[in-house]
Structure formats: structure tokens, C-alpha cells
């Protein structure tokens, strides 16, 4: 790659907690290698120095929750050759999408002393609802190794190895004993996409669904399996209404058990 211009990277923030951006800074060992291969051109969390666009690759964190952001995302898209959304907010609307199941004006009237100053949308929506997205990286937060994999794949012109299968596959490959079968702990693993390395089951907890629905998730069958473990409908609703509440299969499942 001698003599070749380094690709320019930009990191953008929308409605989010910044945790996914921090995963890039958290790359530690890989961070120098990343900086060696790409120019970090626009990443306010890391540096005040901003290099003008267009950018070869953009990471977009956060969901769209305000009229201003609904416009800004189009500018980001225009300035980005390859746009990757990172995290549950950007890919599914995040925890703030709980407003989508309620009346947001009621929320603002309770939270803010002068709600008339708040300009917010009725719904928190993923980036892909507004602009075309080239790749979605799931997780709350994202997995830094998956982030480096997406970057490596982009830099080398190949497809990233990011499986869309269940958390169960990771659990079994790590030799973790199934918490649902061996202990009767309700777990979202069978309908959730892998990527975390089966973190919660490895600590004797059920999966919380941070990486969102896997490919072809059978949420209604999982709900029934949870009921056999004596989980009540309202708790099934709560489980599906986590950080990926507005991802369609989880949304439909929570709505089905709300009735």
C-alpha cells in the first residue's frame, strides 16, 4: 500500500450514550494499527482536529430522535462513501425507542421544567430508516473485535466475518452449559444474534438480547418456552423491550404479549 492515500475515517454521534464510539478507543492493542492504516479525520471524541470530508468510511452511532438529526444524517450520508452504523441505537433505535410505545409529550412534560423548549420526534428510529446503510454492526455496546474486523474487511476489500446466527452457537462453541436447559433461567439467546461471545450466559445469566434479533428469530416460540418456565406475560414484554425494543421481531413479540 506504499504511496497510497490512507482512507479517511469519520465517527458521527446521534442520540446515544457514546459507549460504541468508546469501543474504538478501547481497541488498545489494535488502535495503533488502526491509526497506521487509516486517517482518523473526524472523531470529536478522540481529537479536536477535524479534516474536511468526504470520508471513505463513516461510523454512525446513535438513533434519530430530533428534527435536526433527521436532516443532519442526510449530510453525513452525502459526505460518506461507506457508511456503517454501530450499536443498538443506530441499528434499532436504542433504549430511547421505548418512547415509540408511549406518548413522548407526556415524557417531556414530566422530565423537563420547560418542555416547550424541547424539539423532539415522536419516535426514535434507526439510521437505516432515513438513509441507505452499507453495513450494520450490532450490539450494546458493539464488540471491539467485530469493529476491527469490519475495518480490516473494508481496508482489504472483503466481506466481514460477522455471523448472523444465534448466541447459542457462541455458547456451545465456548462449552458454556445452557442456562435455560440446565437451570431454567429465561434466556433470549435462541433469538438473539451472536457477537458478544455469550457474555451473560458465561456468568450464569440469561441473554438480554443486546445484539438484537438473529436471522429468522422465532420469538413467539421463545415466548412460549419462557411461559413453560413460569415467566409471566408482562415479564416477556419487558425482556423484549430492552435496547433493541424497536427491532421489528422484538417489537412484534412484545406487542403480542402485551395484549
Amino acid at each position: 500500500m506504499v504511496g497510497k492515500r490512507k482512507p479517511k475515517l469519520a465517527v458521527w454521534k446521534f442520540a446515544s450514550c457514546d459507549g460504541c464510539q468508546l469501543c474504538l478507543l478501547d481497541c488498545e492493542d489494535e488502535l495503533l494499527a488502526v491509526a497506521g492504516e487509516i486517517e482518523i479525520a473526524n472523531f470529536p471524541e478522540a481529537s479536536h482536529r477535524v479534516v474536511k470530508g468526504p470520508y471513505d468510511i463513516s461510523f454512525v452511532e446513535g438513533s434519530i430522535t430530533t428534527p435536526h438529526d433527521a436532516e443532519r444524517i442526510h449530510k453525513v450520508r452525502r459526505a460518506s462513501k461507506f457508511l456503517v452504523t454501530i450499536g443498538a441505537c443506530a441499528t434499532a433505535g436504542g433504549i430511547q425507542a421505548l418512547r415509540n410505545f408511549a406518548d413522548v409529550s407526556e415524557y417531556t412534560s414530566i422530565v423537563y421544567p420547560s418542555p416547550e423548549y424541547i424539539k423532539t420526534l415522536n419516535k426514535s428510529t434507526p439510521i437505516a430508516d432515513h438513509v441507505p446503510v452499507d453495513f450494520e454492526l450490532r450490539g450494546c455496546p458493539i464488540n471491539k473485535y467485530q469493529l476491527v474486523e469490519v475495518l480490516s474487511a473494508f481496508l482489504n476489500g472483503r466481506k466481514p466475518n460477522i455471523p448472523a446466527y444465534s448466541v447459542c452457537m457462541e455458547c456451545k462453541m465456548r462449552g458454556i452449559v445452557c442456562v435455560m436447559v440446565a437451570r431454567g433461567i429465561p434466556c433470549l439467546g435462541p433469538v438473539t444474534q451472536a457477537g458478544c461471545g455469550a457474555l451473560c450466559p458465561s456468568y450464569d445469566r440469561g441473554c438480554y438480547g443486546c445484539f438484537g434479533p438473529k436471522e429468522t428469530p422465532n420469538t413467539s416460540a421463545l415466548g412460549e418456552a419462557w411461559k413453560r418456565l413460569n415467566v409471566e406475560d408482562r415479564d416477556i414484554v419487558r425482556a423484549f423491550r430492552g435496547v433493541n425494543a424497536y427491532a421489528e421481531p422484538f417489537r412484534k413479540a412484545s406487542e403480542a404479549y402485551e395484549k
Binding site: Y165, S166, C168, M169, K172, M173, C178, G189, P190, V191, K214, T216, P217, N218, A221, L222, E224
Partner: peptide, 13 residues
């Protein structure tokens, strides 16, 4: 299929 999660557990074990 209505009951199956296609989670892959059966093939892993």
C-alpha cells in the same frame, strides 16, 4: 418449524 428456534443447539451438542 413453528416450535424450532433454528438456534443450532442440536447440531452443536
Amino acid at each position: 418449524a413453528d416450535r424450532c428456534f433454528s438456534c443450532g443447539n442440536c447440531t452443536m451438542v
